[in-house]
Structures are given as C-alpha cells and as structure tokens.
C-alpha cells in the first residue's frame, strides 16, 4: 500500500470535512477497498473511516413502512436484523463470507457499485432511495455503470431506504473463485408492479429487465417469462462464462427468484 493519513471521525459533519481534502477517500468496511489498496491500484492521500460514526449505523422502519439502513451497517447486521424485509436480509447473508459480512457495509457496497456485487441488485430491484449527506437519490438514477454512481466527490451515503415489497427473492449464482455473483437476480413484487434487477451480467453494471417486469406485473409466476429471452449483447464474457451463458442465467435465475418469492 502507498502511505496515507488515516482519520476516524465520529460525526458525519467531521467526515464530510475530512473528505474535502484533495485525494481523500472514504473507507467503510474496507473489504473491497483494502485489497485494492494492497495492489496499489488506488493512492488516496487520506483515508476517512466511516465506521466510528454512530449515526451511520442501525436499522429501523420508517413511518411510511420503508426499511431504513444506516450506511455503515454491516452485512451481518442486516442479515440478522432486517427482519422486516426477509429477502434483503437473505441477500445480505450471502455476501462474501462471515468475516467479510462482519466488516463490509451496505453503504460501502453501493458506493463502490461493483458490477458483480449483490446490494446494487437489491437497491435497484426495490426502488430504494440512497440518502447522502446532502440529498436523496432514487436507485434508478443512482447506478450509472460499472463502478460509476451518481455520488459526487466527497459525498457520503448515510442511509438507504427500502420500500418493503409484498414478495421478493434474490437468487445468486456464484462465480466459483471470487464467490461474487456471476449473475444475481433480485425480484420484488409491489402493489404498483414488479421490479427485476440483475447484477453480475452486464458490462453496464446492475440493470432492470424491463420485459420481465412487464410480464411478471401481469402474471407473477415463473412461467410468465417463458417466452422472453435476454440478448447476449453487452453481457460480460470472461473465463467464468460467455455472454450467452450469462444471458441464459438471467432468465433461469429470474424464474427461480419468482418461484422462491412464492
């Protein structure tokens, strides 16, 4: 790792201030950032840890019924405590491994927006709201391609608000080495319609499968997508799977997610 200054503020305000320095970088659970630093693929002048800020942690249900998760809440805590949204808790419980889940955070995952990460599928599939130190961003506006988000320099996610659906499920098909999603599909049925979000598959990062959403909104059954297919164009191709394979998995896993949602 390159050398850097390390700061561990205890309030959001102090964190924002610390991040205003040139080449400052926020550090949440660090489960992706620290390996990246070890490879010297990033060279921040200052790391600002967000894990000592109490107001960034915790899970609650808002008056409108939305599940609100503090950005620095660990995957393990979401898995254990997000009982109001079982599909989300189940998703959190499948990220990485137990030790990673004890450190990794929802805010860190969403800020990084790895194209194979799980949380982006949940956020987009739930139509979540990403709350930052300065504004609220709808999930549909937030994800802007691989590792790209709507966040500005120095902007900190403080909370993520998930409208709780009637039914939902996430099915993850693991890449055998990294155990990230080779493809993961999050399906959520709301009164206003069904949302289907896919991670791992596309070169553009997490995306919504509009045709499946339409079909499932009129008939929420695995068979409803029988006639649909996903094109291989724009799908990721690597030694773990061709674009065609990933496209195929999107459909298989969507059907399984619908079946699992019940």
């Amino acid at each position: 790792m390159y050398a850097f200054d390390f700061e561990r503020p205890t309030t959001i305000a102090d964190a924002v201030k610390a991040l205003s320095a040139e080449d400052a970088q926020a550090l949440s659970g660090g489960q992706t950032l620290i390996p990246t630093l070890k490879q010297r693929l990033a060279s921040p002048s200052r790391l600002v840890s967000l894990t000592a800020i109490p107001e960034l942690k915790g899970i609650c249900v808002a008056d409108d019924g939305a599940l609100c998760i503090g950005a620095a809440t660990s995957h393990a805590d979401v898995a254990a405590e997000a009982t109001a949204y079982p599909a989300l808790a189940a998703l959190a419980g499948q990220i990485g491994d137990p030790a990673v889940r004890n450190r990794g955070t929802i805010g860190g995952s969403l800020a990084n927006n790895d194209p194979s990460a799980c949380y982006p599928a949940a956020a987009l599939g739930s139509g979540a709201t990403i709350v930052t130190d300065r504004r609220k961003i709808a999930a549909d506006d937030y994800f802007q391609g691989m590792f790209e988000t709507a966040l500005d320099e120095g902007e900190i996610i403080t909370e993520v608000r998930f409208p709780v659906p009637e039914k939902a499920a996430y099915i993850k098909f693991e890449q055998p080495a990294s155990r990230f999603a080779l493809v993961g599909v999050f399906v959520a049925k709301y009164a206003g319609g069904v949302r289907v979000a896919v991670t791992g598959a596309s070169e553009d990062g997490v995306f919504r499968w509009a045709e499946a959403e339409a079909a499932l909104s009129s008939d929420f059954s695995a068979g409803a997508i029988d006639g649909l297919s996903v094109g291989a164009d724009g799908m990721i191709g690597d030694l773990h799977g061709t674009p065609e394979y990933r496209a195929h998995l999107v459909k298989v896993l969507t059907a399984r997610a619908v079946a699992a949602a019940g």
Partner: peptide, 20 residues
C-alpha cells in the same frame, strides 16, 4: 481471522487504527 469485539474478522482487511 481473529476476533474483534467478539466477531470474526480478517485481520488483513482491517487497519490497526480501526481496532482502536
């Protein structure tokens, strides 16, 4: 893997300063 405040964590993926 070590335990930090009772939880298993990868000690190669947490800075010493975070364990203050």
């Amino acid at each position: 893997v070590v335990h930090v405040d009772g939880k298993a964590v990868k000690s190669c993926t947490i800075f010493a300063a975070e364990a203050e």
